[in-house]
């Protein structure tokens, strides 16, 4: 049971990292980023491919963050003039471009065959110890990320990006240039997603383009919305709720033994969907409350 809980915790923390990036971009700044999985994929492939070339993991993780962050920069430039829905389309397109490039550039990424045998964190440790150590590291990184975003939110920079979210015209009227702030926010959020990607690659140990589909982006959106938009605590809680729904539903079997094993798989996914719908119906502002609407 311990190892299973640890596995859930690790995956949940990866989603927390992704949600934190999105909270910064959407919750605080109002950028509708539908391409989060693209940065996640760039981080995963960067770290995995470098590690397979023999680069120590202590260097591949920062590389993942840097490359994912840098990849956000051109999108920022291109889409500066786009607001809201248009920006959403550009980012969605970006994540698909990333996936197709990964699929096509076989010399680098092994294409659709995927990259197997990615080294794990703490290869030296055996069994549960390795997992516990991994959990400790990702927890530490998540805490640092939470702290960082809380600091950003409370700083003058944070007030400014929230002003962009609430009224971009007013910010311009005050003589500030929203564009450069938006780019910075995009880069930071993407870098965090890159780190999440690196953890994912070294935890699952096998990556293939099929894993980086838009569904991942929308899982993150669900987490952010259920937690409470614009709340840093919401990103954490939302990812936790999502994991409880997804994994907890595996134990439905023990509660409703009269459903056949084969039907159970579909019932389970139906139940997850129902829970998500009920959640947003009865708690539309998210568990921690929607900060943007105050």
């Amino acid at each position: 049971m311990d190892a299973y809980l640890a596995a859930i915790a690790i995956i949940a923390l990866i989603y927390v990292l992704l949600s934190l990036g999105l909270t910064l971009q959407y919750g605080l700044t109002g950028l509708i980023n539908f391409g989060h999985v693209g940065f996640f994929a760039i981080g995963a492939y960067t770290s995995a491919l470098l590690a397979l070339k023999g680069v120590p993991l202590i260097l591949t993780f920062p590389a993942a963050a840097v490359l994912a962050g840098l990849s956000a920069w051109p999108i920022g430039l291109v889409s500066l003039r786009l607001r809201d829905d248009y920006f959403a389309i550009v980012t969605l397109g970006f994540s698909e471009v990333v996936r197709i490039v990964i699929t096509s550039e076989k010399w680098l990424t092994n294409g659709v065959q995927g990259v197997p045998g990615i080294p794990r964190l703490f290869e030296g440790l055996q069994g549960f110890a390795a997992q516990a150590a991994t959990l400790a590291v990702i927890l530490a990184v998540t805490i640092v990320a939470v702290w960082m975003i809380l600091r950003i939110a409370k700083s003058p920079f944070g007030r400014l990006i929230e002003a962009i979210r609430d009224n971009e015209e007013a910010v311009k009227a005050l003589g500030k240039d929203p564009a450069s702030f938006k780019i910075q926010v995009l880069i930071v959020g993407a870098a965090i997603a890159g780190v999440a990607g690196a953890f994912y690659a070294h935890y699952i140990t096998y990556i293939v383009p099929d894993q980086f589909i838009p569904l991942v982006t929308f899982y993150v959106w669900m987490a952010v919305i259920m937690g409470g938009v614009g709340r840093v605590s919401g990103a954490v809680v939302g990812a936790a709720i999502l994991m409880v729904f997804l994994e907890g539903s595996r134990f439905l079997r023990d509660i409703v033994p009269w459903i056949s094993e084969v039907d159970m798989a579909s019932v389970r996914i139906g139940v997850v969907g129902l829970l998500l719908i009920l959640f947003v119906m009865f708690r539309p502002q998210g568990l921690m409350g929607d900060y943007t609407k105050r």
Partner: peptide, 22 residues
């Protein structure tokens, strides 16, 4: 004991962990 992979590696890893550990 039955679990569904959802034909998705990430879901399959968690399902496998559950089968093995729980």
């Amino acid at each position: 004991v039955y679990e569904d992979t959802q034909t998705n590696p990430q879901a399959a890893v968690l399902a496998a962990k559950k089968l093995i550990d729980v």
